[in-house]
Amino acid sequence: MSEKNTAYRKPLIPQLDGDHVTRLLLVSCLFMLANFVVFLPAWFLDPRVLDGASVWTKPQKFTVSLALHFATLAVLAQQLPREVRSGPMLIGFSYAAAVSLVFEWGYVSLQAARARRSHYNYDSQFEALMFAFMGLGAFLLIAVAMALAVQIYRKGDKSMTGLRWGSILGLTLGFVSTLIFAGYMSSYGRYVGGDPDYVGMVVPFFGWSREIGDLRPAHFVSLHLMQTLPLAGYIADRKRWPGVKLVVGVAIVQLTFATFLFLQALSGKPFWPI
């Protein structure tokens, strides 16, 4: 066998280690996927509607989004040496995110079972307090991404430039832009230009209003910078394209689109009009 064939090659898919943080992140992902399956019957059979969609749509959206979030963190963390992944910084942030995950999912599901809003609900003192706690939980869910970005920048593998900078920029920009868009919604609400108690027709599964301005599409696009930029960098590395340039280009396009959606919603126009 020739030396060329026996030389070490990086696998197409990053190999997941068995360290504590990786296992914690993967278990969190699998927990969400299992809940998605378990609640499928309720989603299809329960006839109750809240904000124009099934009462179980929000929990199901949460399970898919958070499963993707934790899977992303587990994969991107493999760029770090095992001793860094097992260090106190990532362990602390990962456990805070996992605890927040259980809390957020549990309360969202409880409110769905009661056909009550979990977000932007000030109808009772308890629900207002829980919404405030959910804000803290949401921050901890994305803070782990920022912690991971810092560690990848300081101690991550530098052999795949596109993936490295896609991870650093994706996690950082996703964290910062989510704080901006989600923070605005927390202060002023998610709907603009209409009655917040009547959103009319909505986009299937996502639940975004098709009749009034809805700030959530901008939040969605900005949050998923955490996935699109590392993926763009990874593809660039595999294709031997200029990874950093591609990552920066995708970031500019995606942030511009998120800003456009935000301004569109502020003008009272829906993302997908009827």
Rank of each mutant, 00 (worst) to 15 (best):
L169G: 10
Y184L: 10
V199D: 03
L169W: 15
T172I: 06
I180W: 12
A182G: 08
F205S: 05
T172C: 07
M185S: 03
S187N: 08
P204M: 10
M185R: 05
G193D: 02
G189P: 09
S187K: 13
W208P: 00
G200T: 01
Y191F: 04
F181W: 02
G189T: 06
Y198F: 13
V199M: 02
L169H: 10
S186R: 12
Y184W: 15
R190C: 01
S209L: 00
G194S: 13
F205N: 10
P204E: 13
G189L: 00
M201W: 03
F205D: 10
L173H: 08
F181C: 03
P196S: 06
G170C: 05
L171V: 13
S177L: 09
I168H: 13
I168Q: 14
S186Y: 06
G174F: 12
R190Y: 05
P204G: 03
S186L: 11
G174H: 06
V176K: 02
G200E: 02
R210N: 07
G207W: 11
F206T: 14
P204V: 02
W165P: 13
V192M: 03
G194V: 00
F181Y: 10
S187L: 15
R164A: 15
Y191N: 09
F206P: 07
G194N: 01
G200A: 02
R164D: 13
L179I: 08
M185W: 02
G166K: 09
D195W: 00
V199L: 01
S209F: 00
Y184F: 09
R210A: 10
G207V: 11
Y191P: 03
R190H: 05
W165A: 15
S187E: 14
M201H: 05
F181D: 04
V192L: 02
L169Y: 12
Y191K: 01
F205H: 04
D195C: 04
G193A: 05
D197S: 15
V203G: 03
V203P: 04
R164T: 15
R164W: 15
L171I: 12
M201R: 02
G170N: 06
A182W: 03
L171Y: 13
F175Q: 10
V176P: 09
L169C: 12
V192S: 05
V203F: 07
T172Y: 09
S186I: 04
V199R: 01
T172M: 11
W208D: 03
M201K: 10
V176A: 14
